[in-house]
């Protein structure tokens, strides 16, 4: 006998996720993109919608601490997981990475910036002293259509430097 975990729209099991530290239960279709759950159901519009096929990185969030394109992740894939959005990163005030983007002009129109900040935050959490090639790889899925990569790379390097000074 086959048992369905979820039934079709309108009768789906609730999605339980922790978003920015808060346990959340939502009645959404299991295949709904995490991007739309965050923006439309939770009002967290800092996560940007753009390509919707995982190419541009504007919708980047952390899922259990690792960067994931929220346009690719479906609700059921996030069941019982912990999601951190750009809003969640700065709940205690601006982060060092954000400050460095501001100081170094690591943005122009700003649309890609939340995704960039999330990717850089994940990179530095895993490796506080990444090589240039590591930085390029970590940001290879984040596109800036204003082509402002120079400022972005300066911001990342400054964040690495300041973090190193902070930790002695």
């Amino acid at each position: 006998m086959i048992e369905k975990t979820y039934l079709s729209a309108g009768r789906s099991a609730p999605l339980r996720i922790r978003v920015n530290g808060r346990e959340t239960e939502l009645d959404v279709p299991p295949s709904k993109r995490l991007l739309h759950v965050l923006r439309d159901d939770l009002g967290l519009t800092g996560t940007k919608r753009s390509c919707e096929i995982g190419r541009c990185g504007a919708c980047m969030v952390l899922v259990d601490g690792e960067p994931v394109n929220s346009c690719l992740a479906m609700a059921y894939q996030c069941q019982s997981k912990s999601v951190t959005t750009i809003e969640g990163l700065s709940e205690d005030g601006m982060t060092l990475v954000q400050q460095c983007f501001l100081d170094e002009g690591g943005y122009q129109c700003g649309y890609c910036t939340p995704g960039m900040i999330v990717s850089v935050t994940a990179l530095l959490a895993n490796d506080p002293s990444p090589a240039d090639t590591d930085i390029q790889e970590a940001l290879s899925g984040n596109l800036c259509r204003c082509t402002g990569y120079g400022g972005i790379l300066r911001a990342v390097k400054k964040a690495i430097e300041l973090k190193r000074e902070q930790t002695g």
């Binding site: 086959i2 079709s8 729209a9 295949s31 919707e52 059921y76």
Partner: peptide
């Protein structure tokens, strides 16, 4: 709320073997 790709209308069943 309108869903750009009609996700709500065509939401598939998800089976978890």
């Amino acid at each position: 709320m309108a869903y750009p790709h009609g996700e709500l209308l065509r939401s598939p069943s998800v089976w978890q073997p």
